[in-house]
Each structure stands twice: as C-alpha cells, then as structure tokens.
Write a protein that binds this DNA or RNA. Structure first.
Length: 489
RNA sequence: GCGGUCGUCGUCCAGUCUGGUCUAGGACAUCAGCCCUCCAAGCUGACGACCUGGGUUCAAAUCCCAGCGACCGCACCA
C-alpha cells in the first residue's frame, strides 16, 4: 500500500487538492482539503477532543495565527528557528554553514554562533564549496518563520510556527479566570506555518499545516503526584531507547526503570497510545522514540517522538517534549509578567509537558494503515467514527416507488448523520464507490422493504448483509459509530 | 536551493524523436437515457486535456528558452 496509491486516491476522490492549482505560480507545500478530507479532519479532531481533551479534563482555546514579534523574541524562534546557511557564489548550492565548518575542521560549531564568526571561520580555514570548489558567499540566517507586515507601518510580526505559543502567552489570564489548578492541560487545534526550504511528499511536510497541541502545566516538584496515572499505568507501549526497542513495555515499568522522567510523561504517553488505537492506526507499527541530545529541539529537556511505520518509512506524528520551565520563564522575562501561580500554598512557575500532534500526516498514516487494495475492490477500513460518509442510502432499482422510499429514509437521517444518497449505476458499483471512501455501512431499499419495512444493511469490511427494520436504523448506526459489531449473528 | 527525470481529458495511455490531415485518438471513470430484484454487466449518447509565458517557423502538443509544479538524489526538516 504505497504512498503514490494513497495520494492518487486522495486526489481522485476529493480528499485533497493542491492549493491554487489552476494557476501556474501555485506554491509547493500548500494543500486544500476537499469534502471528504475535510470531514475526516473534523472527525479526527472530534476524536482528539473526546479522547484527550475531555477525557483528561483539559481546556481548549483557539489563538490567532499572526503573533507579535516579541512573542518570538521570548520563545527563541527569532534567534533559534533558523538555519545558518552559506551560498556558493559559483554553483548557487546552499549549505549549512555550521555543519560545513564542523565537517572540515572537526571542531564543534554551535548553531547559534554569530554569522560574523562563521564567516571568519570559513576564511581562516580556506573553506570552499564542497560541490564545485567555488568561493562561498557570506553566511546568513534563514528563518523558517513567515514574516507578516501588519498595518500601514508594516510592523514586523510572524505567522506562528507552532500553535503552542498562543497557549503560553494566554496562560496567565487563563489560570486566573478559568480557576485552574495544577496540573492542567491546555489544548489547541489550529494552523501553523513554517517556511520550509523544500517541502516534499505532499501532505507530510507542509508550509501551512494543522497541529493539535496540548501543553500540560504542572508543578515540577509534584510530577509524580498524579492519581489518574493509576488508570493507565498498565498500558503497553513500544519504546525505542536509542535504537534499543522495548516492545510492549508497561508505562509503569517505563517510569520505574526511569526511561521516562516522571509519571506525568508516562501517563500522557499511555493516553496518546490509546488515542491512536481508537483512530485506527496499526499500533504494532508504532513506537515512542526517545530523542538524543542532538535531535532534541532547543527547548526540550527530554523528548519522545511518537512514530509510525509506513511505506515511506517511519513518520513522526507527535512530538512529546518535556519543555521544563523554559517557555514560561522566557515569556516572563521578556514581557515582565509574573508567570508563577499558586499550587497549594506555594508559588511556582509550572513546568510544561507538550504533545504536539501533526494532523495532516496523522490522517495520511491512518489512511495508509487502513487501506486495502483487494482483488475485487479497493476499501479503506476507517473506524466508523472517522469515515467521511457514515451511511450510504441506496435504492436497489429505480422504479416502483423504491427510490421514493429510499429518499424518505435518507431525509430522516441526513441532518444527524453524514448520509449519502446514490441511485446512479448498478448496486455493485455503488457499493464499490462507497467502499473506496471508507463508508462503513450501506442501507439498501428493495421490494421487500415495501412489504415489511425492512432494509438490508451491508457491512463494508465483510460485504455481508443483514436485514433490519427501518425503525432500527438509527439505533444500529449509533452502535456502528461506537464500533460495536452489529453484523455478528 | 542544486542535479537528474518528467508535465496531453478526473485517471491511465497514444501522438512529440522525424513540426503540417491533431478540428488531438483510445480505455477507465463521470453524467443522461435504455435495461435492471444485491456487489465495478450491457447498449446509446454526452461532457472532458496539450502546465504557464516567451521565441523559432508559412505552420508548434511536437523544436528552443524561461518560469511553475511533480518525482528521485543531495542538502534541509521542532
């Protein structure tokens, strides 16, 4: 089940389309969601709300995408979300300045070294372009944030490169007015923007993309004081410790053996595992990979990437970062706001554990894990609660009052469910079309319906049919949406 | 950003090398009609494309240049 196959289906069936596609200057790294893709995305986010936000008693906000410059002075993005690059003046190849020098001289070159020093090191060591031996130009910093000129004065501001900064800057007011107590998760779903130099692989690396982020604020002295940890401590996860794979290790073991820093982290890794299981990922192909010092983001003390195996390799779906007090301390310093809050009778600056989820790539990976090209048909076995169409309503033939009866059933369902009415083509063709977009159930109206008010209900996964009474349809759909097996006889 | 390959109906392919009957052809899909009592049947018809912009030429889908995009490799990637 390859990447090309999935992307082709996405394009042909209205899941995704390239943004601005009819214009010749369309940009790489920007994609529009079509109707089915949009529905899946909405349903995926609903699942996230149910299984993470509500389950854990988090609160959710929706912040702006354009944010002021000082936010990113404080967060470090203006300074650190950059690549120091040098361009060859002869062949125009771009190289990472720090890596170039490091490779040539063997000495460690910090990424954040001023460009003047980088230039000096290039000159001192007589470095040339590794591709063509041409002369190198001056080093400069390429920032991956999109700059936005706001107002007539064209004031510098930026499109947020991660949604979580909204949470950090809103945090002091939220804590006061929402009567929060530690530990508390603050969640947000929305767009983020990164000016990738070379976006690739469709929806896997975008310049404009959806994130669902959760920032858990907690008192670092009470990181193991977490009652609800007991609920999930036996959850088994796959843990990759520097290439050493622990299959099916209990979260409690991971904590006791100090593979994860505290119970907070263990608890949320378990929750995340359970969430993706409900989203339909093949969890045998998943792992939490602990990141080493070089790989971690500049703010993270400990980091676990939740990754899944796909036809294009291991894909990172969620970055789980223990950000410590980095963000609140930084915002406190730059803004002058006191970010300390009361926990019991002590004032503390909370620490943050973050679950930063990529929505677009999650949807791709779920699709790949549930897609099957069978000899007779193509079918996506989306969990019913994620499927873009929940139920197809099909008249077996287009005469003798059968379409009218079918439309009656459709009209009764359409405001409550994503129902789809189709009378075009043979019944088999209509089943195939709905299989291909992952619709879990079809209701077919035939001559018997006219006599005894029963309809057939067809199962996407097995193609089996059962007969139920018209009055049972809604109840049965509810069961299907709860992933109960209504076809078992 | 660099290098390579490529860009024709929604999809796949023919045509490009060797410019002209290409007013761009076929298959699948879609739509309409006929037929029809459960898994892509059949028949009839319809819709539908040369990535964009320049250039060469009497004539460009075809040759040249540039741009944009896709894929692969490099580099990059919270």
């Amino acid at each position: 089940m390859g990447y090309d196959e999935i992307m082709k289906l996405f394009l042909e069936r209205g899941f995704l389309m390239p943004s601005c596609e009819i214009y010749s200057d369309a940009l790489a790294g920007f994609w529009d969601y079509g109707p089915h893709g949009n529905t899946i995305k909405n349903r995926y986010v609903d699942l996230w709300r149910r299984e993470l936000v509500r389950r854990d008693g988090m609160i959710e906000i929706d912040g702006t995408q354009v944010m002021s410059k000082k936010v990113f002075v404080a967060s470090g993005h203006l300074e650190s979300f950059v690549d120091p690059i040098v361009k060859c003046e002869k062949c125009n190849a771009t190289h990472r300045a720090d890596r170039l020098i490091q490779e040539a001289t063997g000495q460690l070159v910090p990424e954040r070294l001023p460009v003047e020093q980088l230039d000096q090191m290039v000159v001192e060591n007589g470095l040339r372009c590794p591709s063509c031996k041409g002369l190198l130009g001056k080093a400069r910093r390429f920032n991956l944030m999109f700059r936005v000129g706001v107002g007539a004065a064209d004031d510098d501001s930026y499109l947020r490169p991660e949604t979580c900064q909204s949470i950090f800057v809103d945090y002091p007011r939220l804590f006061k007015v929402m009567r929060l107590r530690l530990p508390i998760g603050v969640a947000q779903f929305g767009k983020s923007f990164r000016n990738e130099i070379a976006p690739r692989q469709g929806v896997m690396r975008l310049r404009e993309f959806y994130q669902a982020e959760i920032e858990v604020f907690f008192n670092p002295e009470r990181a193991n004081d977490l009652g609800k940890y007991e609920e999930v401590k036996d959850q088994k996860i796959n843990l990759d410790l520097d290439g050493n794979m622990l299959q099916g290790v209990k979260c409690s073991e991971a904590f006791e053996q100090k593979h994860v820093p505290n119970k907070i982290v263990a608890y949320y890794l378990a929750l995340l595992h359970q969430f993706y299981e409900k989203a339909g990922l093949d969890m045998k192909k998943s792992r939490f990979r602990r990141l080493g010092g070089q790989e971690k983001a500049f703010y993270a003390e400990a980091a676990f990437d939740f990754e899944v195996e796909t036809s294009i390799g291991w894909v990172e779906l969620v970055a789980c970062n223990y950000r410590t007090g980095y963000d609140l301390a930084a915002h406190s310093k730059v803004s002058g706001q006191d970010m300390a809050v009361l926990d019991g009778d002590k004032k503390v600056v909370p620490h943050v554990f973050e679950l930063s989820m990529g929505i677009d790539r999650s949807i791709y990976c779920i699709t790949e894990h549930t897609y099957a090209a069978e000899p007779e048909r193509t079918v996506i076995r989306f969990k019913p609660h994620l499927a873009p169409v929940t139920v197809g309503i099909l008249p077996l033939v287009n005469k003798d009052g059968i379409p009218e009866t079918a439309k009656g059933i459709y009209n009764a369902l359409k405001t409550r469910y994503d129902a789809f009415y189709d009378e075009s083509g043979s019944i088999g063709r209509r089943y195939r079309r709905l299989d291909e977009i992952g619709c879990p159930a079809c209701i077919t109206i035939d001559y018997q319906t006219l006599q005894d008010n029963t309809v057939t209900l067809r199962d996407r996964d097995s193609m089996k049919q059962i007969r139920i009474n018209k009055d049972q349809v809604e109840l049965t759909l509810e069961k299907i949406l709860r992933t109960e097996d209504v076809f078992k006889q």
